[in-house]
């Protein structure tokens, strides 16, 4: 009989694998945020008018706002199914820090929502007439920025997991925390459009990511324990 629990690493890997498998069975849930992102961005030329210069100017902001809202849309399924079928209780009663197990779930969530958003961005950017030279900067900013969005969002989802209609509350809780990421992400592109150095904004985005990576799983784990109570 083995009385010690498996190492944390294998628990982490098991959660990642399980969540990937679950996502595969619920593929349609993954398409929603991506479709939302594409639709919102592609509607802008119709709404704002097809002046290429104007579109080029608003492109970074539009893409960042759409990516932010799409991430928020995809967050709902992060903990709620686990909360409802009782698997979250089992995670909370595992002899591992809940924060690390939560981090595994957030990682999968970002890989399955954040990465596809980034993948379609080059095509979407064409619709908004974004300067092709800016594309690498935009992609890099999204690559650093969207994990922060998933991590910060996880705190809000954890707090509202036990609430039947937590959608609006989630938005109110999380959006203020998203603002800094949005400001630095979109501003970075503006600065790049003028041909200025963007290192400062990149550092701030990276700092936010590091902060969120360390603190958000702990906050989300505590919030989940409160939701379970």
């Amino acid at each position: 009989m083995s009385t010690t629990a498996p190492p944390l690493r294998s628990a982490f890997v098991a959660i990642v694998r399980r969540d990937f498998r679950l996502a595969f069975y619920n593929r349609s849930d993954l398409v929603n945020p991506l479709l939302f992102f594409v639709i919102v961005v592609s509607l802008f030329p119709f709404g704002v008018g097809s002046n290429p210069e104007q579109l080029r100017e608003i492109a970074p902001g539009v893409i960042w706002v759409a990516a932010l809202l799409a991430t928020l849309l995809g967050l709902d399924g992060l903990f709620k199914p686990d909360f409802e079928d009782g698997t979250l209780e089992q995670l909370a009663l595992a002899p591992h820090p809940l924060s690390i197990l939560v981090l595994a779930k957030i990682l999968v969530h970002w890989l399955l929502t954040g990465i596809p958003l980034i993948a379609v961005t080059p095509v979407i950017a064409l619709l908004l007439n974004l300067d092709p030279a800016l594309l690498p900067t935009l992609l890099l900013s999204l690559l650093i920025g969207t994990p922060s969005l998933s991590l910060i969002g996880a705190i809000g989802v954890a707090l509202t997991a036990g609430i039947r209609r937590g959608g609006v509350l989630l938005t109110l809780l999380v959006l203020p925390l998203y603002i800094p990421v949005l400001i630095f992400g979109a501003n970075l592109l503006k600065t790049a459009q003028f041909g200025l150095d963007t290192a400062g904004q990149f550092y701030v985005l990276a700092a936010i990511l590091m902060l969120a990576l360390v603190l958000a799983p702990i906050a989300a784990a505590s919030a989940l324990r409160i939701s379970l109570n």
């Binding site: 083995s2 498996p6 294998s10 209780e89 591992h96």
Partner: peptide, 25 residues
Amino acid sequence: QNGIKGELNPLENLAAIRALTATRD
């Protein structure tokens, strides 16, 4: 609540448990 995933089969459900807690040899 059963704490099992409806999408996964019983073996997959138990595999997830095995990785989380101490199990019998």
